[in-house]
């Protein structure tokens, strides 16, 4: 479709008129300071959150000869890549797949797969301690006993225990209640107190649908919290003056038989708040820019479509 000549002329003149009006208003209001709201907004942006979204994803490989789990990170540059975790006396044959994600808060999200149906269970409650010692120990070992994790734990968490958010996916209320007891701490406690509390909570879990002997694999996710700065919604300073330049723009269209809408009349009106009675107003009609209406058909559609009625424009 060719450029609509009336529309082109309208926008072009609008640009010129806006420039002229701005210049005239600027010369009149040169002494009036601009609105200061934008300056305050910039201040708010400066105190925006600084959240370190470290995310690590990958999988563990298990070496039976060395009884070692090796973390293979999706990002080989990640310091956790090739991280070796000895599993020693744990029954590693039951360990299959792991997922480790470190993000904005500590979470151990553990899934497991049972021999019973061979499918991944998306929820987890830690098993009863009698049957789940190994699983609990392995999870505990991987989560919290390995030095690197401890280091990160201290770095990001120990400074402020209120940040510790550890959640598990569980499948019934009993497990949720125990996990809430075990993992949701809102008071400041020592590292040893927190470990003991965590263990006690795990051991109090009940209603486990699978025993550890039935497990063939499980995975977990770790999230670490970095305390973020609070962001306050700062008050804005009142505007000194509203922008004096206001205008309106409108387009009228006609619909062709193929459904295409063609602007045929365009207008704009510019005004100044301080002198609203004086307005710059211009309208453009398509026929003024064509030798005859046939040109309009050619310009818009190639003349292949007969004219049809136009629906009222929206708004």
């Amino acid at each position: 479709m060719k450029e609509n000549p009336a529309l082109l002329q309208a926008i072009n003149t609008l640009n010129q008129s806006v420039s002229q009006l701005k210049e005239s208003v600027q010369s009149i209001n040169a002494s009036v300071p601009p609105s200061s709201n934008k300056d305050v907004d910039k201040d708010v942006d400066k105190v925006d959150d600084v959240i370190n979204h470290q995310s690590q994803q990958g999988h563990f490989d298990y070496n039976e000869d060395t009884s070692t789990l090796t973390w293979i990170d999706n990002n080989p540059n990640n310091p956790f890549h090739n991280l070796n975790i000895p599993v020693n006396d744990y029954n590693t044959n039951q360990l299959g797949e792991y997922t480790l994600i470190m993000d904005s808060f500590i979470t151990a999200d553990i899934k497991y797969r049972s021999k019973r149906d061979g499918i991944w269970v998306t929820s987890l409650g830690f098993p009863h301690p009698v049957n789940t010692t190994r699983l609990t120990h392995v999870a505990w070992f991987v989560l919290f006993k390995y030095p690197l994790f401890i280091e990160i734990y201290h770095k990001y968490v120990s400074k402020n225990f209120n940040n510790v958010v550890t959640t598990y996916a569980v499948e019934n209320n009993s497990q949720w209640s125990q996990l809430n007891y075990a993992l949701n701490r809102t008071i400041k406690i020592t590292y040893e107190q927190w470990i003991n509390h965590w263990i006690e909570g795990i051991r109090r879990l009940a209603d486990m649908p699978y025993t550890v002997e039935e497990l063939t694999a499980f995975e977990f996710k770790l999230y670490f919290t970095v305390e973020s700065k609070r962001r306050f919604i700062k008050p804005l300073q009142p505007s000194q003056n509203p922008n004096p330049l206001i205008g309106s723009l409108d387009i009228e269209t006609v619909t062709l038989s193929n459904g295409e809408l063609i602007p045929y009349a365009i207008g704009f009106c510019l005004s100044n708040l301080e002198h609203p009675e004086s307005k710059i107003r211009k309208t453009y009609y398509i026929l003024d820019y064509l030798e005859d209406t046939q040109d309009f058909k050619i310009a818009s559609t190639g003349g292949a479509h007969p004219p049809v009625a136009c629906p009222p424009p929206a708004g």
Binding site: D250, E252, V254, L256, Y264, A265, G267, T283, Y285, I286, L287, T293, F296, K297, P307, V308, A309, C310, P311, P312, P313
Partner: peptide, 20 residues
């Protein structure tokens, strides 16, 4: 607006401009 067609643009011009 329903009466606007390509063929009567000239006829409705003054009315449309006033409306616009």
């Amino acid at each position: 607006h329903s009466k606007v067609t390509l063929n009567n643009l000239a006829d409705i011009r003054s009315e449309l401009i006033e409306y616009l």
